[in-house]
């Protein structure tokens, strides 16, 4: 965290309120995308939305307790189902699309993308 400089990325994006605003849009994109929606089962939407919030908080540089190992374990069963780079790219697309829809400045979007991108090998179990 760059507390020394005053505002963190998370604060610049608008903190938890920004996550709340983004989660509906992002999750709707994901569920509408036939390439990846099979990974998100129909059972408990509220719990899934809570996990999407965890995802966004992390990508926004906010407080989270996930380690690389956690990311591996969380996605291991999806890797077994065939999760690969193309799915990861699709999620990156939706992440950027969501932020554009919310009129987040391009420079901040780049930073968010970089954080998400840095988890690629853990998420894909590489």
């Amino acid at each position: 965290m760059s507390e020394a400089t005053g505002t963190t990325l998370f604060e610049q994006l608008g903190g938890e309120a920004a996550v709340n605003a983004a989660v509906d849009i992002f999750y709707r994109h994901v569920l509408n995308d036939y390439r990846i929606n099979r990974f998100f089962d129909k059972s408990d939407m509220d719990q899934q939305a809570a996990k999407q919030k965890a995802f966004l908080t992390m990508a926004f540089g906010g407080p989270n307790n996930y380690s690389g190992t956690d990311m591996r374990t969380a996605h291991a069963k999806f890797v077994k189902m065939g999760l690969n780079d193309s799915h990861f790219d699709a999620v990156m697309e939706h992440l950027e699309g969501t932020l554009q829809e919310l009129n987040v400045p391009e420079a901040l979007i780049k930073q968010v993308s970089a954080i998400a991108e840095s988890t690629r090998s853990d998420v894909l179990g590489l």
């Binding site: 989660v23 509906d24 709707r28 569920l31 509408n32 129909k42 059972s43 939407m45 509220d46 939305a49």
Partner: peptide, 16 residues
């Protein structure tokens, strides 16, 4: 309830 929640959300209702 579960299926309809998803349908309603995809039709634009906010989860909250």
């Amino acid at each position: 309830v579960n299926n309809t929640k998803r349908q309603a959300f995809l039709k634009g209702a906010s989860l909250a």
